[in-house]
Design a protein around this nucleic acid. Structure first.
Lengths: 254, 254
DNA sequence: CATCGTCGGTTCACTGGATGAACCAATGGT
DNA sequence: ACCATTGGTTCATCCAGTGAACCGACGATG
């Protein structure tokens, strides 16, 4: 539509991000643009400090951390984060388990913050991880508060199983979403990673629109069914606080 | 030089990142490019999902979290992170204080990972924070292992004081760097934030080049001088492990 | 050893797409 | 009522981006 050289540049950038470390021809194929153009884009992005040639393997391109620095100040990122950190901190101290803050990004849940458990046995998700919605408690929680349209659209895409326990059947997922809606929190038993169980609750932004979710997660040996309710309710309370801070329940302005 | 429309697009993107939420004219001034062009860039970036109009204030532009998602897979990010997480985890458990993993980015230290303390009294740095090198233990640690050229260059830039305790005198900073080099770890007492003390150690990458640093930090009431040596040595040990994993000490290949 | 395919990277003529000055309408401060 | 600023639009000009064809180097394959 507009400024197509920028479009290809960004597409190249995203391709690099997805294929780290990526070769020229590989990228050219991925983005479906002639090598010469891709190379020019890479050089430009390199000048700007967003990508660089891998030191280990010449000719391979990688993202620099400057890209990370710039992008870290994501909008809903900082707004939600600011509203969430206080209550999340308290939740982490109460439960002593790892808590996550996630926001939706193109069919995935993007982990934007994490507070760690002091336990030696730790689940571990690097910040910036993207989890498939159907395979994470944060995803199901988010979907449970999202508009039907979003849910339909998501369930229409092909869903991959990450573990033998991952639920990929749309009908079953709909049931889980309904259940989550009724109960107030979602439960994911080893659907993301074997041995990990987590409990999620949606966050609402202004106007009551689903804005993200929080979760409590840990080894399945510690997060046992007997604790689901306690943790679920604790997380729900925390989520309510955060949603309130985000203006979910305030009257609409005219 | 090359592909200037991409250059302006990225500059606009960075300007948005720095001025969240930013208005059109404001950005136009910032980047020194006509409004029409800036607007076209913003629209293009919006199409790609990297920026969006703020919902709260129409006309204001903000970064989306998609940008964060793409950029999270920063190169030295993931390589260093992979090498560091195991040892860092152990260090956190040993010390029970918050530990950080930082890499240099244009004169700042960029926090790319954090493992939290279980203590109720917590220091808190969001991931993606950029700390001035002279005001952080990670920065001084990094500089202590960096080439002289880098140190000289950095100290030649104007240094800002973040707290009354921040050291901004180049000569004094050089002394601190030398001291750090001799001792093996850096100490920052409330130079970054009042009430916070931290201890840093550099990480070396392939060829022994400074690649980043790690730190232990917490409230000055807990990180007292009596613990400096213990923590410093613990961190130094951890750093050695990580540096080794990064190939700092392996023979050069031919 | 010759052949082939692929790699990263370069060249250059053509033209389509990016540019930016000038222009709106709307808002807000005084 | 005024002026300065805002976000946003228009369009003729021309330069910057495009991509096919090319290169030398490397590794398999026979």
């Amino acid at each position: 539509m507009s400024t197509q050289s920028v479009v290809t540049a960004i597409r190249v950038l995203e391709a690099v991000s997805d294929n780290q470390p990526a070769g020229l021809s590989e990228l050219s194929r991925e983005v479906d643009v002639p090598k010469a153009t891709v190379l020019r884009m890479l050089r430009t992005l390199a000048e700007l400090g967003w990508v660089a040639q891998s030191e280990a393997q010449a000719g391979k391109w990688v993202l620099t951390n400057h890209a990370f620095a710039v992008a870290s100040r994501g909008s809903s990122g900082s707004v939600i984060r600011d509203a969430a950190m206080g209550p999340l901190n308290a939740l982490q101290l109460d439960t002593t388990e790892t808590v996550h803050l996630a926001v939706p990004d193109r069919g995935y849940m993007l982990i934007i913050e994490r507070l760690d458990t002091p336990h030696v046995l730790r689940a571990f998700l690097p910040l910036g991880s993207r989890l498939p919605m159907h395979a994470s408690s944060t995803g199901i929680a988010y979907l449970s508060a999202a508009e039907d349209e979003i849910v339909d659209e998501y369930l229409a895409t092909p869903l991959e199983a990450l573990t033998p326990q991952t639920v990929v059947d749309p009908a079953q997922l709909r049931a889980m979403i309904a259940e989550t809606r009724a109960r107030g929190y979602s439960i994911n038993e080893q659907g993301l990673s074997t041995g990990i169980t987590s409990i999620g609750v949606p966050l609402l932004g202004p106007g009551g629109v689903a804005a993200g979710s929080i979760s409590i997660s840990g080894p399945s040996s510690r997060i046992v069914p007997a604790k689901y309710q306690e943790y679920g309710e604790a997380a729900a309370g925390t989520a309510r606080e955060i949603s309130q801070a985000l203006g979910a329940f305030s009257a609409k302005r005219y």
